[in-house]
Write a protein that binds this DNA or RNA. Structure first.
Ligand SMILES: [Zn+2]
Ligand SMILES: [Zn+2]
Ligand SMILES: [Zn+2]
Ligand SMILES: [Zn+2]
Lengths: 142, 142
DNA sequence: CTGGCCATTGATAATGATTCTCATTATTTA
DNA sequence: TAAATAATGAGAATCATTATCAATGGCCAG
């Protein structure tokens, strides 16, 4: 994402644009998907060693609250962050190498809605992750 | 679960039956579903104040490894445990009161398999949780 | 019996990700 | 520009879970 766009995005959301927030957002958006906080922190530090860990967490929280970032949890004890996409997607995770694929199956989404309705719930979120071994890892095990 | 059955179950799995393990397993099985470790610990302590927290964790791990217990994670920072059921199920969680409903939709299960196959993954597990507000919580908010 | 071996246990320290605190700075407001 | 407000960095605190380690308890070879 271009710097100018980050500036604009933060401004649109009413987020005070500070140097730290710019760097953190820009770094996250340039790192691809499913990035952990400590991973992000170490890259951010390379650009500006003065930025603290707490600020990375605070900024991630802020971006999440403003709908710019999605928080994921693949069950390995640390949260992952990715830029919020226009389209929803779920995840397929390799339990050997950590590779993550994304997918979206509208039929599954609809069936989830239906289940929630049947049970009297007003569904506001869901979480669907498939865990297994990717092709590469299977071939290497042979 | 009856005491005799626990004894038998542990024995079948080759788990050395100790007093602690019997009490922990029996307590968990009698507490219903989706129980947290500390919650379990506090009930276990009532039966035998000498049992330590570490033993509760160790036993849960043991029961899980032997397929007697399933570990769940509803994203609130603590793991939940429930006796492993003969049939698979997924969860619907109220984000206000914590109520948990279970469901199983064979079509969703099949579609998951299909996605994994398409992406070249050998799926060994999955996780599907729906989050929302249950009927009761919605009515109370009015 | 009976001393030794090995699994289990309980108390407590350690871990690791995340959050909190608070004194210091930066930004906004008037 | 000065006061008011918000953000930051360093490090302490939290909280669930694991690891450590000395003590305990069976169980078996002799
Ligand atoms: Zn892989
Ligand atoms: Zn993703
Ligand atoms: Zn509810
Ligand atoms: Zn369940």
């Amino acid at each position: 994402m271009k710097t100018a766009n980050i500036e604009k995005t933060l401004h649109e959301k009413g987020i005070t644009p500070t140097m730290q927030r710019r760097i953190i957002a820009q770094t996250l958006f340039s790192m691809g998907k499913h990035v952990g906080a400590s991973e992000l922190y170490s890259i951010v530090r390379q650009k500006n060693p003065g930025i603290g860990f707490a600020t990375v967490y605070r900024t991630l929280q802020l971006l999440k609250e403003n709908g710019l970032v999605e928080q994921r949890d693949f069950g390995d004890g640390k949260k992952r962050y990715e830029r919020r996409d226009e389209t929803h997607h779920d995840h397929l995770v390799c339990i050997n190498c950590g590779k993550v694929e994304e997918f979206d199956v509208p039929v599954i989404e609809r069936l989830q809605e239906e289940v929630a309705r049947e049970k009297g719930f007003n569904m506001v979120d869901h979480r669907l992750e498939l865990y297994g071994y990717c092709k590469k890892c299977r071939e290497e095990k042979e």
